[in-house]
Write a protein that binds this DNA or RNA. Structure first.
Length: 291
DNA sequence: AAGCGAACCTGGCTGC
DNA sequence: TGCAGCCAGGTTCGCT
């Protein structure tokens, strides 16, 4: 499910509910998700206070008042929902706020103010880890993570440097989390369409011979930022599983120009949107205006 | 080294 | 209606 905009949406939903609270109890319903939960997971969290909630790539990172960080990844189908003490409060209950199948509620964090934060993940590709704060940068999960696309580093020059010498298709390289962190299948397809670049083009074609950026690289860097910022503002894209923490749907899926639109006309040139497979994943693009 | 396909797991949709 | 097959927003492992 979740690419950078969806994870950021979840972070913004959880932050006001969690930060400043302590974990009063942890309701752990199974021993593992994608990986086993850490040893003594509930004991290590209980009574810890959440000092902050950050995002790095597609990871959520809760800063705890002890020496540890709680790392959470949503995999393909993970979601959090917030249940305030006394039930869902303000206004009418949001339709669908509660997943049909609570059998996939795997963890509930019970906070000191009575709020419950429930993690649901049907496919269980998500996971949680506890790592010592000093080990964060060198930790295997994070040491090879690439730049933040909404940070300062992403510009044409950086793209050209990252892509120089790469013969793999632009689409595959943009999905490589060790280069740029947070892009996934949807937003790569959408950014390439906005930039008018073919997903099949060799990544190195965005660098000049001297390694500097060409106009394509500069344009691509800009539209990556644009599409991610617009998606965050829309609360992410809800195709199947993604919900905001109050149960509301994201709505950026209504703004897709190519993703999931195979055989439809391109909104820019009227050509037909095509679907191909690259590295085992669906790619959507317009053969007419993406070169 | 880089690039690609398979695997992890469940649910939803399509087509016979 | 039922069932087989295919597909899904991510990441990692193993084989060229």
């Amino acid at each position: 499910m979740p690419e950078l905009p969806e994870v950021e949406t979840v972070r913004r939903g959880l932050e006001p509910a969690m930060v400043g609270e302590r974990f009063a109890a942890i309701d752990l319903r199974r021993p593992d998700l994608r990986f086993p939960f850490p040893e003594r997971f509930t004991e290590r969290l209980t009574d810890r206070r959440v000092e902050g909630l950050r995002r790095r790539a597609k990871y959520l990172i809760a800063d705890l008042d002890g020496a540890e960080l709680l790392i959470m990844h949503l995999g393909m189908s993970g979601s959090f929902r917030i249940e305030k003490a006394g039930g869902l409060t303000h206004g009418a209950p949001l339709l669908g706020a509660r997943p049909k199948n609570s059998a996939h509620d795997h963890v509930a964090f019970e906070l000191s103010n009575g709020t419950r934060i429930v993690y649901n993940d049907p496919r269980r590709f998500g996971f949680m880890q506890l790592i010592p704060r000093p080990e964060f940068a060198a930790h295997p999960l994070f040491k090879n993570i690439g730049i933040e696309p909404l940070g300062e580093e992403l510009d044409g020059a950086t793209l050209a440097r990252l892509f120089a010498g790469r013969t793999a298709p632009l689409k595959s390289v943009l999905l490589d989390q060790t280069l740029i962190a947070g892009l996934g299948n949807i937003y790569v397809c959408e950014a390439l369409h906005r930039a008018g670049l073919s997903p099949r083009r060799p990544a190195a074609s965005l660098a000049r011979k001297d390694g500097g950026p060409n106009k394509r690289a500069t344009l691509l860097a800009r539209v990556i930022r644009d599409v991610l910022n617009e998606a965050v503002a829309a609360g992410g894209s809800s195709l199947r599983d993604h919900r905001q923490t109050d149960g509301a749907l994201g709505y950026f899926q209504h703004s897709f120009r190519v993703y999931g639109r195979d055989n439809e006309p391109c909104t820019r040139c009227g050509g037909k949107v095509r679907r191909i497979t690259q590295s085992g994943r669906a790619t959507f693009y317009c053969g007419g205006c993406q070169r």
